[in-house]
């Protein structure tokens, strides 16, 4: 199965002066004016684990939506009409600025797979990153997208939310990404 990958190195995203630090007022604002708080992994991890145990990752998903808005404003075209390199470049650039790792896009047959490197696992099943990616690309492409983590590999398969539970079960059963991709077939939507 051929795998094609593209990274944020192809990006035309400009990270210059993205954050503005106002020491007099004691705040940090991102490009666009939204206020951000800088926290460490040691603080964010327990909060995410609490959210996962409660089954509510809405906050993380909304963070992904905010990152998508920032990426969209930096792009010259609509994300759906843009090239994959441009979309991944801008989305990955914003994720890197917020410290959520390095984003890559892979093709596993017909399936799109997001690969996130450089971030420590915040929860056991990587559901926090999956929620962040789901919110990010759902907002970017204006379509509901579920990003299912596959076998602790840092890879997340972008599928329809209606089959996300099935893919998640295959992953929990130990199926490899190639095996899961081979079990899927494209249909007319």
């Amino acid at each position: 199965m051929a795998v094609l990958a593209m990274t944020t190195s192809d990006s035309s995203f400009d990270p210059g002066a993205f954050f503005q630090f106002d020491l007099a007022k004691g705040n940090v604002r991102a490009r666009g004016g939204s206020r951000v708080l800088v926290v460490t992994e040691g603080v964010l991890g327990p909060l995410i684990n609490t959210a996962v145990s409660n089954g509510d990752l809405t906050a993380i998903r909304s963070l992904g939506s905010q990152l998508a808005h920032i990426a969209t404003t930096s792009m010259n075209a609509q994300p759906n009409a843009a090239t994959p390199e441009e979309v991944i470049g801008h989305a990955g650039g914003v994720m890197s600025l917020f410290g959520w790792g390095r984003l890559r896009l892979e093709h596993w047959g017909e399936a799109l797979v997001l690969h996130v490197e450089g971030i420590a696992p915040l929860d056991d099943d990587n559901l926090a990153v999956a929620a962040l990616l789901g919110g990010l690309f759902s907002t970017l492409c204006a379509v509901e997208v579920a990003c299912v983590p596959v076998a602790q590999t840092g890879r997340y398969m972008m599928v329809d939310p209606r089959i996300a539970e099935q893919v998640w079960n295959w992953s929990k059963e130990g199926e490899s990404l190639a095996a899961i991709a081979s079990k899927l077939v494209a249909t007319q939507r």
């Binding site: 690309f137 379509v143 939507r189």
Partner: peptide
């Protein structure tokens, strides 16, 4: 486009 690729990926169903 990225939208076309995403559309194919979202059209995947179990065999």
């Amino acid at each position: 486009s990225f939208g076309d690729l995403l559309k194919r990926s979202l059209s995947l169903r179990p065999r």
